[in-house]
Write a protein that binds this DNA or RNA. Sequence first.
RNA 1: GCUGAUGUGGCUCAAUGGCAGAGCAGUUCACUCGUAAUGAACAGGUUGUCAGUUCGAUUCUGACCAUCAGCUCCA
Length: 635
Amino acid sequence: MIQVNLKGTLREFESGVTVAEVAKSVGMGLYKAACAGKLDGEVVDLRTPLTADCTLEILTFDDPEGKRAYWHTTSHIMAQAVGRLFPGTKFAIGPAIENGFYYDFDLPAPITQDDAARIEAEMKKIIKEDTPLTRFLLPPDEAKRKMEDQPYKQELIDEHAGEGEDISFYEQGDFTDLCAGPHLLTTGCVKAVKVTSLTGAYWRGDAKNKMLQRVYGISFPKQSQLDEYLAMLEEAKKRDHRRLGKELGLFMLADEGPGFPFFLPKGMVLKNTLLDYWREVHKRYGYMEISTPILLNRELWERSGHWEHYKQNMYTTVIDDVPFGVKPMNCPGGMLVYKSEPHSYRELPMRVGELGLVHRHELSGTLHGLFRVRCFTQDDAHVFMTKDQMEDVIHETVRLFDEVYSTFGLSYEIELSTMPEDHIGTLEEWEYNQKVLSDAITAMGKTFTVNEGDGAFYGPKLDFHISDCLGRTWQCGTIQLDSQLPERFELEYTGQDNQKHRPVMIHRVVFGSIERFIGVITEHFAGAFPLWLAPVQIRLLPIADRHIARLEEIKAVLEEKGFRVELDDRGEKIGYKIREAQMMKTPYMVVVGDRDVENGTVAIRSYKGGDLGTMTLDAFLEKIVPERDERRLPE
RNA sequence: GCUGAUGUGGCUCAAUGGCAGAGCAGUUCACUCGUAAUGAACAGGUUGUCAGUUCGAUUCUGACCAUCAGCUCCA
């Protein structure tokens, strides 16, 4: 007999009892919902036998690991369905992902959108068949024989062969796949499924390899959960910044300049308001501001290393027979500014900001609204410092990030990106700088994940991925630690000891790119910006033409207080004007009719709250001035 | 860049190998109205571009351009 600790309760079982059987003993509900087990902290398959005293937790769809097992099983069901519908299919891989799963196939012929419906129907059939999944192990050579007509599986087996362990397989009826698991017990445990999209994807994610067909899907234990998920996708579609950007008149893109956004008057108000805010914050944190040229000669880019490591993304031209590069980053210009005069240790840390317009030739297929463009404004800054100021400067920078992001109600996750293959500097320098970054962030009580090999070519970086209200994440801020450029540009400061020393520096952006940030907050707020950001803050709506004069007086008062106001003097009914102001997501509407002119009042309507009733203009101002000045978020 | 899809007035979308249509938006006129669409009239298109097939192409074919879903890449 063995003792199993189930959520603090000790239970006795025969040795060899499986995780699934333990779940069954607790109750059918948990047995049916079980996706995997957590045995002494390790995720295991439901078929795993228990042979010693242990602590066990039954994982369901509500646990992240249980969800993975659920989706992974659904991906096997999809593979089985595709195998049945398209004989001769070669199977690649089919993992669970953040939202659902995919499976990559090498198909005899390309599949179309109609096939997606057929695959989904076949999957439902397999679910109905309720076939058990069984698990078995084979040594590598036998595994290869079992998968002899599957070239991609052969490659995967070869990779595992070196580890000297047997290969784990799962089988469900007419479909077998090598897989470490864990998996559900039968195909019938999966309830609601949906094939979400079809696309191409390279084998092993390498553009040199063959492109396979990737089929994405998602599944849930209840139809209602699937419906909810699909409704969430609809909501995300409505919030798409490309759609809202058009509807709200913020920006446009033209065929004549792919990836080069045009800002329209309302978008320009938004952009300038963000930049005003940025300047206010950075001034408070002791930053200076500079501006460096967009075009600089090739010799500079060679010195900075960009010519060697970033040329494929740079636009170039020739002026008076001299080759020039359009800046893809602001740093080299910043280096020249630092070098233009001698510096003392007393000036350090020296914080130099630049709202720099950079151009990068991104691949055409990667362009995406304002999220991925070929020309954007970085809210860049370089902080030059001594080595022993590094930690303080990083802390101060993270505090600045915290302040800015919380102003927008955005939360974030930190990623540490380490040395890429294509880099400058020694391994020792990289490791030292990576440690400085990770220690600094840990000392602040913050956690981070590591993104191996994803640093900039000149140094490691902390990337700030901010998540919007739908839980999607976007990389915006980054702090990059750089000891290479100061070396290459021979930057110096005079120390207390009257000797020349080399400073270190960080590159950092908070918004990342103003363009991307505008896209992110547009989706985050669903276009209904907080009062301080709204391009039009108040719209004035006369009931009839005779009320226009009174609203013109009100307009003058509001504008005098610095508000952005529009008067809708068209000869339309009040309902029509309100509808339009609502659709433009205008925070406040001021309605004036006979009653208001007589009583000296205004009728206020807010975008979020509807009709707020009648008040004096002063009372209205008392409400909205602090709302704007404190940059309050919408409720 | 790669794989697949798409491209019709400002927007959303119809239709067809034989004169391209609707709603919204726009303009004009009437209405002067109290919290999400007043009515009428008018105007608006070389169907992404360039070739080809055809008596005739917006429709079929090809190339290119752009966009979309992903891959790769990235602020």
